[in-house]
Design a protein around this nucleic acid. Structure first.
Lengths: 152, 152
DNA sequence: TATAATATTGTAATGATTACAAATTAGAAA
DNA sequence: TTTCTAATTTGTAATCATTACAATATTATA
């Protein structure tokens, strides 16, 4: 209970520190992203908050996310066309998408160590890494492995 | 002149080898991708070929690209939402998008050497790397550099 | 050349995102 | 607390990219 309250306080401060008014909707969106590290789509966020906030509009989700992105509190993930996702982690890390279950996993990668040819004289601001394949959970489902060898 | 013909022949064979009928439209799309390594959008391809093929339909561009992707002759790039691009290079390489001129550059990166934490037991099929920043050409335009430091 | 299978085209449908104006809410000042 | 102003939320309409679909055209081949 105490943790819950502190969490809400943290989220409120996070917004205030970035000159974003901590409205009910914004707090709920940011709280959802913080508690559900699933790189959700707009649809998922909207659906999940709709019960709590019956007047919620999808436009508000879009507005809120764009505000959060502008402030650098959220990153947009466009790992595949036709699905845009949002990530509350803004530190450098990679994303793995499982072709089977569709889940997106975070992984650690130190891109500073990677050697790159062809960008001499370029100024690099962001580095994104995106892998795809089959996650360990899906592979563990025995006959799953046999299927996946062919499907992809 | 000889080169042009050989090129067309190569492209035709490329399609035939993949059981894709070398129709006029498909040849022109593939030829355009081969001669213009700019990771074009559907709009760019359509616009560029429209003069040559006045009856061209945008649906054909989409159909053709999807066929080529399915055959593995073309890769789709979704480095940013709101713009999908297509790449004739299918070998592993990185992409750099310049925030200033919008151009996309290829670069060489050996992802096999990169250390990754958090994907134990995962089967990895594809690895994509996407950087963004300011390209050397834009940086060379002297006062440009000063502006870019702030803008991003 | 005739035939059957495949490709192209134009239009309509879909779906995600944004524009916009009206209604609501939040925060500061009295 | 009450009032006032600015910011936010909401619903609807508009926009844009992409796909569905059916009619037409083209290709490969006998």
């Amino acid at each position: 209970m105490k943790d819950m309250k502190r969490n809400l306080e943290d989220i409120t401060n996070k917004l205030k520190n970035n000159n974003i008014r901590p409205s009910h909707q914004r707090l709920k969106v940011l709280e959802f992203l913080d508690n559900n590290r699933i790189h959700p789509t707009v649809e998922q966020i909207y659906h999940s908050l709709y019960d709590e906030i019956p007047t919620l509009s999808k436009t508000t989700i879009y507005n809120t996310l764009n505000t959060l992105i502008e402030a650098g509190l959220v990153r947009i993930l466009t790992i595949e066309d036709n699905e845009v996702r949002y990530d509350i982690r803004t530190d450098t890390h990679g994303h793995f998408k499982c072709k089977s279950c569709g889940n997106i996993y975070d992984f650690e990668v130190d891109m500073d160590l990677v050697e790159v040819k062809g960008l001499n004289g370029f100024r690099i601001y962001t580095k994104d890494v995106y892998f795809s394949g089959i996650c360990s959970k899906c592979l563990e489902q025995e006959d799953g492995a046999k299927i996946f060898d062919k499907v992809i």
